[in-house]
Amino acid sequence: MSGNGEREMTTPSDELRDPVARDAANWAPLVQKLQASGVSGDAPNLVDGRRLVGPLQGFGQMWQKTYWVRLSGSDATPAEIMKVWRARFPEFWPRGNRFYPPLAGLEPGEVALFSVSTGPMRLSSGVLVLYADDESFTFMTPQGHMLAAWVTFSAFMEGGSPVAQAQVLMRAQDPIMEISLFLGAQKLEDRQWVHVLSFLARHFGVEAIPETRVTCVDPRRNWSQAKNVWHNAGIRSSIYTLGAPVRWIRAAIRR
């Protein structure tokens, strides 16, 4: 660092001077409300019409959770790992949890749906692909998701080995979910990403146990967002499940 406060840097080269050309295609276009129109499978769609909710709009304590696995011995490049991860994302999920990718793939601006088992009940929601490039992609959650979060999947080289990583920056979206996290949902989420990384590593011929680092970024709760409970995923998913007979009857009448 020099005396005038200038910090150490790698000088940006001239070819990096066009910012929009470099990352514009990597970001989702601006949307006010989500629309999950092109999703594969028979996913429960509790996402249409919902706004995006990031960690700043959530209720609970803010956590940064990083899960990573070193693919020692693999000669896959970070770009190759991400290409597989992005294209075959649902295959690495634990049995019983379902991820319904958009038909167009995990491209910026696309919406994916999922349904996960949390003990006695199933929770359904979705994610927007907020950002994607050759070495990372990021999901952002909508209203009604359990979390107000960004989840970034990436791969990079470290110490000569490729490393695959999932990083979650999150708050529980509402007070009910905050309690659920402390009662065990947090562990379920940890298990989910450890499973995903283990299976990803296995795909590349590596048996490895992923590591986890959890940091509390903000111990305060965001009480102004307690109203998010109106969109609570558990309540909405239960209503959706209870409404199944009505939907079957309606569908039968239409036929």
Partner: peptide, 22 residues
């Protein structure tokens, strides 16, 4: 002078914001 920002950069700004607020 911003030339490029990815989602990791946005996450970095959030943690900076939380720190400032605290």
């Amino acid at each position: 002078g911003l030339e490029y920002m990815n989602s990791g950069g946005i996450g970095l700004l959030v943690t900076l914001l939380i720190r400032a607020q605290r």
